[in-house]
Computed example of a mutant assay.
Amino acid sequence: MKKLIGTVLTAAALLVGCGEKGDETVTAETIKPIDINMSLVFTQNELLTQELIKVSDKIRERTDGSINIKVFPGGQLPVYKDNLEQVVNGANWIAVEDLSYLGDYVPDFAALAGPMLYNSYDEYLAMMDTEFVAGLKDQVEQKGIKVLNADYMFGFRHMITNKEIKKSADMKGMRIRVPGSQLFISTLSSMGASPASLPFPETYAGVQQGVVDGLEGSILTMYSTKIYEVAKNMSLTKHFLGTVGIYISPTLWDKFTPEQQQIVTEELDAGAVSNTAELIKLDAEYTKKLEELGVTFNEVDTAEFSKLTADVYNQFPTWSSDIHSTIMKELEAIRAAQ
C-alpha cells in the first residue's frame, strides 16, 4: 500500500512539473490578488506622493496585479493616529506617517523625530541603518506594526519670517505658527519663540495679517505654497527633518509570498533612493527660484539652538531618560565614519 501511494504521488509531481499549464494553474490557485489602501496626508502633487504612486505601480506590474496598492493622498482616508490604528487592527492597509506616531507604541521611536539631530540627509539614512533603530523596529513589530521602510524624507524645516534670525534672542516674542503637536510646541518654545497652533490653510493669511510673525517649514513648502509672497526670509535652523515611515500589519505581510515580499521591499527601497535624489535636486532648484523671488537665506547659531533644544528630550516622561545621549552617540559614530 505504501508503495502504491508513493507511485501516485510521484506521478502527480511529474504531471505538475511537466508543462507551463500546470505551473500556471498552481499559481492562479495559490496567489490571490490582495487589494491594499495606502493612506497619507501629503497632497497629490507633492514629491513624496508622486514617488509612492510610482512605487505602487511598479509593485502592481511586477506582481502581475497580485499586490494592488491604491494610494489615497491628501487625507482622503484616516491619517495620523487613526492611520496607524488601521495597521494595528490588521486591515489591508499601508500607513505613511511621521516616525513620531510610532511613539504611541514604542515611545523612544518618537525621539528619532526630535529637534536638532541631523545635519544632512545622509546622517538620517545612516541612522535608520543602525542596530539601535533595528531594535526599535523589532519592538514596534511586536505591537502590530511592521516598518517596511523609513528612508522617505521631505526636507529640513527652517524658520520662515520677515526677519533674519541668527540666535534665540532674535525669536523672542515672535509668534510662530506650528502644527498642533507637543513636540513642535516644546521645540519652538525652547528656541525662544512663542508657538501658535494654527491650521496650515490659514497660515498664509495669518502671516499676511500679522496674526503670526511667521512659520516653520521646508524649502519645498515655502515655494509650493507661495508663502514667499508674505514672508521674505528663511533662517536655516534645520530644527526638524521631515521624514515618514511606511507601515504595514505583520499579519498582512505574512500573507504575501516570499517573492511578493521581496518585490515590495525592493521597490520601496528604490523609491526612497529616487525620492532623496529628487529632493536634493528640488532643494537646490527651489532655493534659486526663491532667491529670484526676493527671498533671503541666512545661517544660524546651530550650536546655541542645539543646546537649548536638548532639554526637549526631558519633557516626555515615556522616553528613556538617556535617549538624547543614546541618539547623539549613534550620530557621532556615523559622523566619524563619513
Rank of each mutant, 00 (worst) to 15 (best):
L198V: 11
L198T: 12
L198H: 07
P199H: 02
T203N: 12
T203L: 12
Y204A: 08
Y204H: 09
A205Y: 14
A205E: 15
G206Q: 02
V207T: 05
Q208F: 11
Q209V: 09
V212R: 02
V212M: 08
G214F: 08
L215A: 11
E216V: 15
G217R: 04
S218K: 01
L220G: 10
T221Q: 14
Y223S: 03
Y223L: 11
T225I: 08
E229R: 11
V230R: 05
A231D: 03
N233L: 07
N233R: 14
S235G: 06
L236P: 06
L236H: 02
T237Y: 01
T237P: 02
K238R: 11
K238I: 03
L241D: 05
V244N: 01
V244Q: 03
V244M: 05
I246N: 03
Y247K: 04
Y247I: 07
Y247F: 09
I248F: 05
I248G: 02
S249G: 02
S249V: 00
T251K: 15
W253I: 07
D254W: 00
P258G: 05
Q261K: 13
V264G: 08
T265N: 11
E266F: 06
E266S: 12
E266W: 08
D269W: 08
D269S: 12
A270C: 09
A272Q: 04
V273G: 09
